[in-house]
Design a protein around this nucleic acid. Structure first.
Lengths: 232, 232
DNA sequence: CAGTGGTCTAGACCACAGT
DNA sequence: CTGTGGTCTAGACCACTGC
């Protein structure tokens, strides 16, 4: 049993799909037919089909059959870490400010809280080779008894900051990526004297009940960062 | 059998992980133990564990057990379509040029070809509400007998352009996202008179053998596009 | 050696599609 | 009604781990 039967089934069907012998919408051979074809039991055949379904190749309709799925042509996976990206990585982070503030209207709305609730604001500058490359602001919901340990915060990514208060797994995350021209404050922080675009990444974190627990905005020098995404 | 046994197992173990009763690295009850606990057969228990493994909650080491996985805190999924994004969508595309060119050094390198090979260049402008919002260039490997049908190209996304020549499923894709200041040409195309940043998205497509088959660069007005990514 | 997960079988009953 | 996929069982043998 060098290679399991179910993998042989997976490879064969993948090959048929990639060679357009099977096209999106087509029916795959029924499970009983595949049992005979491979001399395998139904559970083995179903294991192969389950893998194909999981990888997005097929889907099943009970009572009808397994069908070839239309691939998601627009789907990409991106690994975002404010400290590391495709062309560079932060070697030093400087804490500018840690404070407890009252949110303005927009921030209160983003965090789904009223304006009289306290919010922790953390502002940092990221450096590469001694030069500032990104300006970073985080807003966290304030919780009593949750000490803010500056040493822990200085070099932490956003999910890391929250992982002690929220379950690792409950965390849901959202990114918004756009480009902008720096304002005077940011030009000063990032030593920008001529025209330079910023890549801005907003990061929202939600707990298991879909309540926002934090908002982060990172302003990267456009000549410093490239984000990379890949299919599968 | 309102809800299958294997789903009950999945939910129970997920709850234990989310409540930190089980922490990353911990062993999950062995399969035989779970069989007794739920009065189920081993195949049923394994079906539940397979789902948890697929969703990234656990991993297994043969001969040792199933262990709680450390979640990927940096992973996001992004749906990128040059015609549609989080805040806007293209309602008109204008074909500026379709041509066969010889690549310069950089393009030849990107496409893994020599400089004497032909490349199809397609330049387009995207409009929203009558105003130009993005400038788009695609480079496709030239293939004999592959007609370039302008009507098909004008409103197609990049994967769509190639899907008639390459298997849907074989396609591998890569995105590079960065911010830049527009040059004079792009300012003219996009009616930019004052300071405005561009969000630039480069898209590379590869066939099943990992050979590049196309390169696309889209320059979006920074006030027009926001890309959105989400975890799970 | 006993315990673990990985593969596999040959049945079973169910709900559902289509005729 | 037959054929489909969805769930489930009670066994089996294997390779691997750790003692």
């Amino acid at each position: 049993m060098v290679s399991p039967v179910y993998l042989k089934i997976v490879e064969d069907i993948k090959r048929k799909i990639n060679s357009t012998e099977l096209k999106p919408g087509d029916v795959v051979s029924s499970e009983t037919a595949l049992c005979k074809e491979y001399g395998a039991s139904r559970m083995t055949v179903r294991k192969g089909l389950a893998i194909l379904a999981n990888e997005g190749y097929i889907y099943s309709i009970p009572g009808k059959g397994n069908f070839v799925q239309k691939p998601e042509l627009n789907k990409y996976t991106i690994y975002y870490d404010e400290m590391n990206n495709a062309i560079n990585s932060v070697d030093k982070a400087r804490l500018l400010e840690v404070n407890i503030i009252m949110p303005d209207e927009k921030l209160a709305g983003d965090l789904h809280i009223t304006r009289n609730k306290n919010v922790i604001m953390i502002r940092r500058l990221f450096y590469t080779d001694g030069a500032p490359v990104a300006y970073d602001i985080k807003y966290l919901l304030y919780q009593k008894g949750m000490p803010v340990v500056e040493k822990e915060i200085e070099h932490a990514t956003f999910p890391e900051m929250l992982s002690k208060r929220v379950s690792y797994f409950g965390l849901k995350k959202e990114l918004i990526i756009y480009a902008a021209i720096p304002d005077e404050d940011i030009k000063r922080y990032l030593n920008i004297y001529d025209d330079l675009a910023l890549l801005v990444v907003e990061q929202k974190l939600y707990n298991g009940e879909n309540k926002p627990v934090g908002l982060g905005i990172t302003y990267f020098r456009g000549d410093y960062i490239k984000l990379q995404g890949t299919s599968q």
